[in-house]
């Protein structure tokens, strides 16, 4: 049953990616400072986009309309990324770039790594849509939900706690 192999292998990869994010969270926790630079409503929109995309990618898997729902997911993912780039750019323009302090270094590294993962997921979807080959869909869904969970942690520990 070769599919089982790939699924298990992918789960193992996800586990190692968990450790990767755990390390980044740990550095963030050590280096955290107290700068009031985030806008919660803005991040809330980002969060909504990603949560909804997790729903749509699930629909792509369980329904027959793979194309429609994947395109929808892709658009939501790209929207999320667009917002993130916008946020990063604004922070840098206001002088709160990663070189500003260790705190902001760890912020950009953690959130940016998540963003890179989302970008990789978008590329993956794009390739699927262009080639019209969906045999990896199950793993993509797994990956996308995983990124969603990581984002919930980021939302809580970085943004919510950052504001409190």
């Amino acid at each position: 049953m070769p599919t089982d192999k790939t699924t298990l292998g992918f789960w193992l990869y996800i586990m190692s990616d968990c450790v990767l994010f755990a390390s980044l969270f740990a550095t963030f926790a050590v280096l955290r400072g107290s700068e009031d630079i985030f806008s919660l409503p803005f991040v809330f929109v980002q969060t909504l986009a990603l949560l909804i995309s997790s729903f749509t990618v699930g629909l792509a898997f369980v329904t027959k309309k793979q194309n429609t729902f994947l395109i929808l997911t892709l658009l939501l993912g790209l929207g999320f990324l667009g917002l993130e780039v916008y946020e990063f750019k604004n922070l840098m323009l206001e002088g709160f770039g990663p070189s500003h302090s260790a705190y902001l270094s760890s912020f950009f590294a953690l959130v940016g790594t998540h963003g890179l993962h989302v970008a990789a997921g978008c590329l993956w979807m794009l390739v699927m849509l262009v080639t019209q080959r969906f045999y990896q869909l199950q793993r993509l869904v797994l990956f996308w939900h995983f990124l969603d969970i990581i984002w919930i942690f980021i939302f809580t520990f970085v943004y919510l706690f950052g504001i409190i």
Partner: peptide, 12 residues
Amino acid sequence: GFHFFTTDLGGN
């Protein structure tokens, strides 16, 4: 130019 482990700006 990040500051994770530098001697200044909070690096550790």
